[in-house]
Each structure stands twice: as structure tokens, then as C-alpha cells.
């Protein structure tokens, strides 16, 4: 949306396609992104045989293998469930924070803002490392709970899906907060004020005015977090270990440990299709809303 605002014609706009300015960037993307992805698409229809390499034979076997084998369907299922959980949790935790952020001014806003930015500027590996220290059997959380005698034996928080969800939600929360904050700042305060003046209670105004007007931010934040969470590799592979199988970790394992690039490629494209299938309806929704507004 920012991009479309920026694309608006400004005075001094020159006519004619200035391909010379665009050429270096377009060539770079063609060579190092579009080209390789096309090659990956081709590879996904080939066969890999251990010892013989990639055979030059077109087939749909890799896709069929993923979409019929119960093991791989389970991987697809847990990837989508993880994405849905992480998206719901970031919405739940992100909304109060974004609401306060959008309604605070001056140094308080800056302080809160830095709190949200600090994790964004810290790499996912480093933050996942922090979660490994916290979540382990002998980690801070388990030791504290044992000390307070809330539990008898350590909770299993590492090497399972719940650990991955706890850490991944934290890793992606700043993206949701920033998306929601932008949407909430866009709401005209006089609308909320008017609703309050005609006698709407705080709760009622929130649910019938603020929340519906924040829908574009909720949708764009959810799209972002969902696609980042189902394609996340670092946090699931470190927190989940070998026990948790999600699409990105299976792609990596197929490609790097088993050298089966064709099958890894097929899983990659199934993941892209899954993201696209969820993106398109969401984007149409936002588009329709912004046209009405």
C-alpha cells in the first residue's frame, strides 16, 4: 500500500520507460532469482536416483509422493497448523501492544517502539539460541517451575511442536505489531471520538469501530506472519531438532543430507502453492475493503 502511494505521479515525472535505470536490477533478479527458480521448477519434475544422480526424465512422481504418502501429508498438516497457531498467537499478543503503541505519544511511544524494534534487529538465530537456553529440560522455565513446586518433573518444551510455536511466535511478533500499528494509526481519531460522544461505551466503540477499521492491518499482518512462519527454517530446526518435521526442514534435509534435489524442489513448490492459495483470497479481501473506503 505504501508502494502504491509512492508510485503516484509527482510533478517532474519524466516520460518514457527508463530501462537503462531498471536494467541492472532486473538483470540481477533474472540471473539470480527468476532463472534459478525456473530451473528449480524443471528439476522438480525429474527423478533422483542414489548413485546415478538426476535422471533426465519428466514425471510427476515427486509431487505424487508428497501428496499421497501419509508421512508427508502429516508434514504438510503440521506445517499449516504451526502457521495457524503462530498467526493466531501473534494477533492475540500483538493487538494490545499495537493498540497502546498507536495511542501513546512522545517518549513513551519511542520507548515502546524500541522494545518492538530490538527483536526485529536481532537475528532469528540469536533469538532462537535464547529460547534454547530458556526452554531446555534444565532451562530457566523448568528450573523455576520445579523450584516453585508447580511441577514434579520437567515439562518437555524443546524438540516438539509446542516449543517451536512458543519461539516462532516471539520471533515473528514484531512484524504483526508493526502491521497493526500502521493500521491503527490510520484510523481517524475523530470517528472514535464521535462514537464515544454519542454514548458508546469503551468496549462497544472498540468492537464496533476500532476493530473493523483495523481489519486491513489484521489481514496484512496475518498474511505476512503466516507465510513467514510456514517457510521458517532456523527456529524449527533448532528448537524442533530431528523430531519435528516441517516443510522447510524436510526441504533442507532432502536437498542437503539426501541430495534429492528433485524431491526437495517439489516440496518447495507445494509450499509456494500453499502460500499463494492463502494469499490470494486475503489480498482480494483487502483490495475490496480499500476500494470501499
Amino acid at each position: 500500500m505504501v508502494a502504491s502511494r509512492l508510485l503516484k505521479e509527482a510533478p517532474g515525472t519524466e516520460r518514457g520507460p527508463h530501462w537503462l535505470l531498471l536494467a541492472p536490477n532486473l538483470a540481477w533478479l533474472l540471473l539470480f532469482m527468476v532463472g534459478p527458480l525456473s530451473l528449480l521448477a524443471v528439476i522438480s519434475f525429474k527423478t533422483y536416483e542414489p548413485g546415478r544422480g538426476i535422471l533426465n526424465m519428466w514425471q510427476l512422481g515427486n509431487y505424487a509422493k508428497f501428496l499421497t504418502d501419509p508421512f508427508y501429508l502429516g508434514v504438510l498438516g503440521s506445517t499449516l497448523v504451526t502457521g495457524a497457531c503462530v498467526t493466531a498467537l501473534t494477533l492475540l499478543f500483538g493487538f494490545p501492544l499495537a493498540y497502546t503503541l498507536a495511542h501513546t505519544r512522545g517518549w513513551r511511544r519511542s520507548a515502546l517502539y524500541i522494545g518492538v524494534l530490538m527483536p526485529l534487529l536481532t537475528s532469528a538465530v540469536v533469538r532462537t539460541f535464547g529460547w534454547m537456553i530458556l526452554l531446555g529440560n534444565n532451562g530457566f522455565i523448568n528450573r523455576t517451575l520445579l523450584q516453585w513446586a508447580w511441577i514434579d518433573h520437567p515439562l518437555r518444551l524443546m524438540y516438539n511442536l509446542s516449543g517451536v510455536v512458543i519461539a516462532l511466535t516471539e520471533v515473528l511478533l514484531p512484524f504483526m505489531v508493526l502491521a497493526l500499528d500502521a493500521a491503527l494509526l490510520n484510523i481517524d481519531p475523530s470517528v472514535v471520538e464521535a462514537a464515544r460522544n454519542v454514548g458508546g461505551s469503551r468496549m462497544r466503540v472498540f468492537f464496533s469501530i476500532t476493530l473493523p477499521l483495523a481489519v486491513p492491518g489484521i489481514v496484512s499482518g496475518s498474511i505476512l506472519v503466516f507465510s513467514l512462519s510456514i517457510s521458517a527454517f532456523v527456529t524449527p530446526s533448532l528448537i524442533g531438532g530431528a523430531q519435528v518435521r516441517l516443510m522447510p526442514t524436510v526441504i533442507y534435509q532432502q536437498a542437503m543430507a539426501l541430495l534429492d534435489w528433485p524431491f526437495g524442489a517439489a516440496i518447495a513448490f507445494i509450499m509456494l502453492v500453499a502460500i499463494a492459495l492463502l494469499l490470494i483470497p486475503a489480498l482480494t479481501l483487502v483490495e475490496r475493503r480499500s476500494r470501499l473506503a
Partner: peptide, 20 residues
């Protein structure tokens, strides 16, 4: 197209670049 790498899954791009 020019802004798309921001959102594109790095795990897919990584594999594509390895192959190419």
C-alpha cells in the same frame, strides 16, 4: 517484481540458487 525478494521464502530461494 523488484520488491518480491522481501517476501519470498528464503528456503526456496536457497535451494534454487544451489541447483543453479
Amino acid at each position: 517484481l523488484l520488491l518480491s525478494p522481501i517476501l519470498f521464502p528464503t528456503i526456496v530461494l536457497g535451494l534454487a540458487l544451489l541447483v543453479a
